[in-house]
Design a protein around this nucleic acid. Structure first.
Lengths: 220, 220, 220, 220
DNA sequence: GATGAATGAGGATTCATTCAT
DNA sequence: AATGAATGAATCCTCATTCAT
């Protein structure tokens, strides 16, 4: 991308800053597809046009690389959410739902551009790895607080006990779309990660949101 | 297979059945927790009180064991669904929703007793392993057909294009509860796999079902 | 050796008991010559007619192998000394010097047959490895106690403050003969480990002993 | 070389001299503690506040650095001995023992200030590295000649055959005090390298010298 | 003189699997 | 049915060294 200006004859070295990013990109892809244990450092290196030892000039080891990938992937989500939460605070109750939808779109857009992140988070969640609490504290917790706010501030569709499940359902649906893409690619004849499918999912989620938060007429 | 009588001393997974079952039990747990790549045959063997070579007297190899685990785990789900679908066919449209709820409960009950299956399926879905299509054909496809039937037969909350997403959302919510248990254990202060949480989730799912299928008053 | 009865066509397996000993023998030699860090597991394995991974069927790792080598090498010394100390207790003061000489000879004989042990101990002492305290407690301490007894019980050549140095000198002279063999092979034109040189050293040590313990006529 | 004036601010090893000296100091310490194979160039560089590649601006490689360390460490010993030998030649037989003692003190003082050298020599001796013959020719041989002279010139305590062992014993005792310091630190509750212990060892060595060279009254 | 990046060689260890017993 | 021993392949990582800057 930004290597355009770079000396085209660059043979051995390459733009230092981009190497790190290139490794992160490749690692994100492979970790997402195969998980931490299933990914060989050498494979990451190879796809990043390096040898495995060279990779150690940029990262302290496999685990450190994994964590860097995770951090880089989750940070934007964290930013989206904190920004949205900050905005929401100064809004009327009525406008909060609109803000929620904006946030939702932003998250979906980010995940659509980085579908690996959904997978990464679910891998981490499945294995209960040591970075899980980082994810929880950094990303999940804020969104949950935000989500519970949204729910409690609207007509209470869900009572206090149900709310955690409702929030969890949200997360499952949002992440699942990306994380379980291979399954649904096999199931339907469409790639969930294709732009138009992402667009559909976003529309679906908006309806889903209204459903989940609506002053539904049906009680238990 | 040999589970027919359902030995009453069974705690969660089984008893001193045959070695083969013991291996399957252990393997299911480890594969679910660590994934295929992250699980060492030797670890499975050790926890099953054998040595790794002995395990080869019962299974042809790691991959074969993995598939056996998967098959054993998914088969009951398949049975539940086909049975339910068969039942539904002879029911009035009005009774189908009740049957759907019964099926839902049955699935949740099974997953609750075998929480590893949810994880296994999601591992497999994440990595897009070769057993995925087996799962899809054997379990997911039938439930989807059933689900889409249910939806189309009720007031059409979801139009034809949205229906796949709605079905997917269902699957995400059901599986996610088990697969992402570590995350939500960290997030809330409760174990999603504890009996009372399962019970709550079942109640939540019933409301969720009504929501998803209801002749909701909100249009686009 | 004891493989005689064993099937002569034994191709892959070999006498199980002897493999472990064979590894220990080779490892002792290589560790003694090159030190712990300087010895590759693969080299040990190769000289023991194995592959490196096979070695892990017998020992838990390089460090564990090293410690096993050390333990096996030091144990006999420990036995010699404790036996001698036990004997000495029931002897008259006059006979203790004779017993000391017997012990000396036994130690020298053992070291002569296992010249690597001297080297191992000195390697360990130089690097201050974690097994050092084991050596000290197991072997050095008893011999020191014995040595200090011997000295105090004879005419006190060395006053209390000098005695530790005298004991240390003993140890240096005994071990050094083996540990620094390469140097003295280069220095003199004789191999310190050749039988006749060992014999000479033993004679020398006897005179040395008398010198160190003698009621010498010279004061400070 | 540039040590001529012996900068008074020198603590033990030197001061902020040239980078080259700093590297040598660090390398001496690490090689002494861990041996050649056990020491990583990067560790040396780091402790000398450089990166490994920078080190190559000063030395041709690890081996070259090792040899430089050895040369720098052994040279002063060589100087002491040749000077002493030169002096001794013009002395009466009676005064030679005094000169021997002076030399002994000088050696001990040097080793006390550079305790690593003793370790280095013993490492080299243990592994029989390629620099060993340099050490032998440069340092050990001269001292041996001197020592054998001293012995032969005094009443012959040791006959011709024993003399090499006696000389060797000398070397063992002198070097061992430094090389096996970790062991004796563990054994006694005192650091052999502490100034007062060095002082004691020097006193001990003087008595030891008299013992070894004395016209002892005991025959075989 | 110093350094970040890169790398070939090697090093310890794990792993799935085989085989003789 | 079980196992100890063996192993080729692979894994993560270290190391000494080079080179462009």
């Amino acid at each position: 991308m930004s290597e355009a200006i770079d000396d085209p004859t660059t043979s051995t070295q390459g733009d230092p800053e981009s190497t790190r990013e290139r490794i992160l990109d490749v690692a994100e892809k492979l970790f997402a597809d195969r998980g931490l244990a299933g990914t060989a450092v050498r494979d990451i290196a190879r796809e990043a046009s390096l040898t495995a030892p060279s990779l150690y000039n940029h990262f302290d080891g496999k685990q450190a690389l994994y964590e860097a990938v995770l951090a880089r992937g989750v940070q934007p989500l964290f930013d989206i959410i904190t920004a949205s939460n900050a905005t929401a605070e100064s809004l009327s109750v009525a406008d909060r739902q609109a803000e929620s939808e904006r946030m939702l779109d932003a998250i979906m857009d980010h995940l659509a551009h980085h579908p690996n992140i959904g997978k990464l988070i679910q891998h981490e969640s499945l294995t209960g790895g040591p970075s899980l609490s980082l994810i929880v504290r950094g990303w999940i917790r804020p969104i949950v607080d935000s989500g519970q706010n949204a729910m409690s501030s609207s007509f209470a569709v869900w009572d206090e006990q149900e709310r955690p499940m409702a929030v969890a359902a949200w997360i499952h649906v949002i992440l699942g779309h990306f994380a379980m893409a291979p399954l649904f690619r096999e199931l339907f004849d469409a790639d969930p990660l294709a732009p138009e499918q992402i667009e559909r999912q976003k529309r679906f989620l908006r309806r889903f949101a209204r459903l989940m938060l609506a002053p539904a007429g049906d009680a238990d």
